[in-house]
Simulated assay, not measured.
Amino acid sequence: MAYPLPMMLVAYEALIDFEDEEAPSCFDDFDDESLFSLFHLTRPCLMFIADSIRVRMKNVSPKNNQFSVDTLVMVTLNYYAHGISSASLLTKLGLSHTHCPAIISLVSGTISGMADKFVTFPETEEAKAIVASNINAVCGIPSVLGILASPHFRVRVSPYEKDDYRTFFSPLGYTAVVSQIICDSDGNILCVEKCEVGSTSEQEMWASSFKGKEVEEGFYGPYWLIAGKGYLQSKHVLTSVTDPSNDPEVRFNEAHAKILGIMWATLSCLMRRFKVLQQLGFAKKSCLDQKANIIRACCVLHNIAKKFSVPSLPVGSEPVYPGKQHSGTVEVSDEALSARQAVINKVFSAPLSSNENGEGSVSSMDKEDVK
Rank of each mutant, 00 (worst) to 15 (best):
P6G: 03
P6S: 01
E19M: 07
P24Y: 06
P44R: 06
I53N: 00
R54W: 08
N64L: 05
D70A: 09
D70S: 07
N78G: 13
A81S: 11
A81E: 04
G83F: 01
S86R: 10
K92I: 03
L93P: 11
H97L: 11
S108I: 12
S112R: 11
A115Q: 09
K117I: 07
E123R: 15
K128P: 09
I135P: 00
S143H: 09
S150R: 01
Q180T: 15
I182R: 06
S185T: 03
I189A: 05
E193H: 06
K194C: 08
F210T: 12
F210V: 14
Q233P: 14
Q233Y: 13
K235T: 07
L238A: 03
T239L: 13
V241I: 15
D243A: 08
P244N: 02
N246I: 03
P248M: 08
I262D: 02
F282V: 10
S286V: 02
A305E: 04
S309T: 12
S312V: 15
S312L: 15
V315Q: 10
S317Y: 00
E318A: 06
P319S: 03
G323I: 05
S327N: 11
S327I: 11
G328R: 03
L337I: 08
L337K: 14
L337T: 09
F348R: 02
E356I: 08
V362F: 02
K367W: 06
